[in-house]
Design a protein around this nucleic acid. Structure first.
Length: 935
DNA sequence: CTAGAGCGCTCG
DNA sequence: GTACGAGCGCTCTAGC
């Protein structure tokens, strides 16, 4: 029985391609258990279809529905403009085989499914929308694509399924500043970097809307462009007219796509239970198959039980309730707080988040605490919010009404947060733990979703909560900026209205809990549970303690140096201006480039992408042989760097309470497993030049103490010798030989005794080059020799140590096959770019070669750091800093030798017992009253 | 006035 | 067009 499409009918058009990409990016790369077929996007797609169907059963259910896909990459738009969508990335390899499966899935759900060669889905959607509207029906387009907004109006609406929001004419006006009928005009002007629609350079959506509203439409605007007052805009519109008109053609949807079906063919049909369940079972979606079977009142077909059946492939697809910030609880009294505590105690775990007055965990004060026990169930306990509604200078210091006392709340929560039987879950727990310590609360045990994400996905994306929420929960959290504002007018969290704070803060705890549930089982499946539990989680409290202790920095020394630098710089500046013949800003590479290459006439100036001359150290060193000016600029730059980045900036980082500098280590910042130090970065304090090294004299031991530095000797080369199995190198390390001299001797056949230092230097450069994924170009530039000569060195090196080439080739092959490489301790470093084409391929290869070496070295020192507190607990000392292969300690005078022995033993044995290295690890030690002496 | 990109330089 | 991995200060520009 079919009905003619007409008045009273309601057509739903689903943007299928958008669904697929959303599903693909939202989920980890799942594969079908039985044969390894990539299936993540199909899984997400099916979950979305299922959810769509169950959400659309009410009185406003559609009478007609279709899923529309893109087909082919070449459309009429490419004929108009060959750069259209030209910078779009190629479809990921593991997504391609899933495309036909999404069509199958749609048909299995018994939903019409259409695509037409040479047309984008948007054009088909446009054509159907117009036909349906003209037939007197209503249309809802399930998509959030702004390119479709031109269709809205006259019975056509859009629905953003992710945000659960309808988009009507008003919504379009909000987005574009004009009605749907003028959207294409605005798009033609604003362009679109994603689709590579050029538009008018320098004009964005805001300006475009302004112009269109003033002139009525694009054609009138272009005809009367000469009247525009702003010179830049006028020029652009006059000059780029053709480009703008082309852009309009590109963004205008084709409403006359030739269709091989009619609206009547799209009538809603119930799914055939047998067909649908068979498809889902074939895909091995256990959870979804069961759920669909329940809804249809049918029996779920059996799915072959594999060992991993307990964690079926689609179980990570979020199936929880939507995130609704309006439903969170505000805890204002002890009765409610005790109810939460009882619930958490019975449950055994809780997600925790703190809100504070700032990002500096040594200074920020606690403002409130949020807790979550289940998806959608979360609360916020405001503690020290201030009354914000008064302009009175004193009024703003008054505590707001309806808050529990800080002391009584912490007293009630302390037993729970310290209870060894209750797991505390946090996102970047190091921050919250450091805050709590300052209030006498020692959080343990804990899980950290940021570290879980890092163990799973290092190298793929960031691990901040916003990124993770977007990716794994399909949800964009409330931006903190919407509460605090930005820049000078920004407020601190204690000034935020409590009702707003509840939504924001409790949402963070809710999201953290959901992420934990998602990652928990995934760790096992990815076989990184051990990495997380032995290399990530236990390091966090060690870092927290180092950061809290800080390193003593002498302000007087820095200040004296700053003054000395300022004087020298002033002298150099005068000299430079004289040599240049006029005054200019020496600190501006742009101005310097113009002086050198335009005014003074030096040859060989190369411009970068911004059109400015390059004036880096390589360029200036070359020019310095011809003229004094570039040489003086190099001197000036060295001083300027030391002053601004070190002697000035470090003073601002001295904590007023402790008199020490407290860096912050980011455990998830570097993809290889290294730490990164920030605020300030204490891992790049100068050491290579004599003048720079003197800055380390300002890093001092407290009175009665000594600084001790222990560093691994040649750790990366030793690891290379081990993993690549180079017998000659391994033996040299066992014999304690000079490894670079030995390499030179092997390569050039010269004796080690009385070797030319230049020859050794070249061998050293090659040894390092190998670790970095050597290239003739790179080595040539480093040694400043011709490329052919460099290539000759490399060839000879590979000839003498053939195992190195084998290791490199095997590593790259492994990366291509698996999408990641591994350290000796099982850490995975993802290499998503390894399949790229062009210059990116080279980058990805070299990174893949370097990652296991750098990463294994990082793992070794991490293991040492994790064991260190126990090993030195009876020695009066503190571990202060880590600089990749070095640890810096502060120890009471008299205990130096004891500490060196204990710490060296831990460091040299750090690979054991997990890994037996064929080469010894050797640690050098130094000591002194400051870091310059100790290093 | 502010945010972000680009440049340049520091470290292992 | 190129060595691997990081962070930060300065200048300059676009846009509010």
């Amino acid at each position: 029985m079919t009905t003619q499409f007409g008045k009273g009918c309601h057509l739903h058009l689903i943007d299928g391609s958008a669904f697929i990409f959303r599903a693909y990016h939202a989920l980890p790369p799942l594969t079908r258990k039985s044969d390894g077929l990539p299936i993540g996007a199909v899984s997400g797609f099916c979950n979305m279809l299922q959810r769509y169907i169950s959400d659309n059963t009410g009185s406003d259910a559609p009478t007609h529905v279709a899923v529309i896909f893109d087909k082919g990459s070449h459309t009429f738009r490419n004929d108009l403009y060959d750069q259209y969508k030209a910078n779009r990335e190629a479809m990921p390899e593991d997504l391609r085989p899933q495309m036909p499966l999404t069509r199958e899935a749609t048909r299995a759900f018994n939903i019409a499914c259409h695509e037409i060669e040479g047309y984008e889905a948007d054009d088909i959607i446009a054509t159907l929308s117009v036909q349906a509207r003209e037939a007197g029906g209503r249309v809802t387009i399930i998509s959030s694509d702004k390119d479709l907004m031109q269709l809205v109006g006259g019975g056509v609406e859009m629905f953003d399924a992710m945000k659960n929001r309808r988009i009507d004419v008003e919504g379009v006006e909000e987005k574009f500043g004009v009605g749907p009928d003028r959207v294409v005009d605005v798009q033609a002007l604003a362009g679109d970097s994603v689709d590579n629609v050029p538009g008018a350079p320098g004009i964005g959506i805001k300006t475009a809307a302004l112009l269109i509203n003033e002139y009525g439409d694009l054609e009138t605007l272009l005809d009367r462009a000469g009247e525009i007052k702003q010179p830049k805009r006028r020029e652009t519109l006059l000059e780029k007219r053709e480009q703008i008109e082309l852009s309009k053609k590109l963004v205008t949807l084709d409403e006359n796509t030739p269709l091989d079906f009619t609206l009547d063919d799209l009538e809603v049909k119930d799914p055939d239970a047998d067909v649908l369940l068979e498809f889902l079972a074939q895909m091995e979606f256990r959870t979804l198959t069961k759920r669909v079977a329940d809804t249809l009142g049918a029996e779920a077909p059996a799915i072959a039980d594999t060992p991993a059946a307990a964690s079926s492939t689609d179980s990570v697809a979020p199936e929880w309730s939507a995130i609704e910030p309006d439903k969170y609880e505000r805890v204002s009294d002890m009765v409610a707080l005790n109810r939460w505590i009882a619930q958490i105690t019975a449950l055994g775990y809780v997600a925790v988040d703190t809100e504070t007055t700032g990002l500096n965990d040594m200074q920020a004060d606690l403002v409130g605490i949020s807790l979550s026990t289940a998806p959608g169930t979360a609360c916020y306990i405001p503690l020290t919010h201030r009354d914000g509604d008064s302009d009175d200078l004193f009024g703003s210091d008054k505590l707001a009404e309806g808050q529990l006392g800080l002391d009584e709340t912490l007293k009630a929560l302390k037993p729970l947060l310290e209870d060894p039987a209750i797991l505390k879950i946090g996102q970047n727990m190091k921050y919250d733990a450091k805050i709590f310590v300052r209030y006498g609360v020692y959080v343990a045990p804990f899980d950290d979703t940021m570290l879980m994400s890092y163990a799973l996905h290092a190298g793929i994306h960031g691990h901040g909560m916003d990124t993770l929420s977007d990716r794994y929960l399909n949800h964009t959290p409330i931006p903190i900026k919407s509460l605090l504002g930005t820049g000078k007018s920004a407020i601190t969290f204690d000034k935020v209205d409590i009702e707003e704070a509840v939504k924001y803060a409790a949402e963070d705890a809710d999201i953290t809990l959901r992420l934990w549930m998602t990652f928990k089982s995934e760790l096992h499946r990815a076989q990184v549970t051990t990495v997380y539990e032995t290399l990530e989680r236990p390091l966090s409290p060690v870092l927290a303690q180092m950061e809290r202790h800080g390193v003593l920095v002498d302000r007087e020394t820095l200040s004296r140096m700053s003054n000395a630098f300022a004087q020298k710089m002033a002298g150099l500046e005068a000299e430079i201006h004289k040599l240049a013949g006029r005054s200019f800003n020496v600190g501006s590479p742009k101005q310097l480039g113009e002086i050198l290459f335009d005014e003074m006439g030096f040859e060989g100036g190369k411009k970068g992408k911004t059109g400015a001359y390059a004036t880096g150290v390589d360029v200036l060193e070359d020019l310095a042989t011809e003229h004094d000016l570039p040489a003086r600029v190099l001197d000036w730059r060295q001083l300027s760097k030391l002053k601004s980045t070190y002697t000035d900036a470090l003073q601002n980082h001295i904590d007023p309470d402790t008199g020490r500098v407290h860096t912050s280590y980011s455990q998830t910042g570097a993809s290889t497993g290294r730490m990164a130090s920030t605020d300030p970065n204490l891992q790049n304090i100068p050491v290579r030049t004599e003048e720079g090294r003197r800055i380390r004299e300002a890093f001092i031991a407290a009175p009665g103490n000594t600084l001790i530095s222990l560093d691994y000797s040649q750790i990366e080369l030793r690891i290379l010798a081990h993993v690549a199995g180079i017998d000659a190198l391994k033996q040299a390390f066992r014999d304690g030989m000079d490894i670079h001299a030995m390499t030179a001797s092997e390569m050039f056949g010269v004796p080690i005794e009385g070797m030319d230092p230049m020859v050794r230097r070249q061998a050293k450069a090659i040894n390092f080059g190998v670790i970095y994924g050597i290239s003739g170009f790179g080595l040539a530039r480093n040694l400043r020799i011709p490329r052919s000569e460099a290539q000759g060195f490399i060839d000879r090196y590979f000839e003498r140590f053939p195992g190195i080439r084998t290791y490199m080739d095997e590593t790259v092959t492994f990366a291509k096959e698996h999408g990641y490489v591994q350290t000796l301790f099982g850490r995975k470093i993802n290499t998503p770019e390894i399949a790229a084409k062009g210059p990116r391929a080279g980058f990805a290869k070299r990174a893949a070669i370097n990652a296991p070496i750098q990463g294994t070295a990082a793992d070794v020192i991490r293991r040492a750091m994790i064991r260190m507190p126990e090993a030195i607990k009876d020695i009066p000392c503190k571990m202060l800093l880590q600089v990749h292969d070095e640890l810096l300690f502060e120890v009471q005078e008299g205990a130096e030798d004891q500490l060196i022995a204990a710490a060296r033993s831990v460091m040299e044995g750090a690979a054991n017992p997990a890994v037996h290295l064929d080469v010894p690890l050797v640690v050098d030690a130094g000591q002194g009253s400051n870091w310059a002496e100790a290093h």
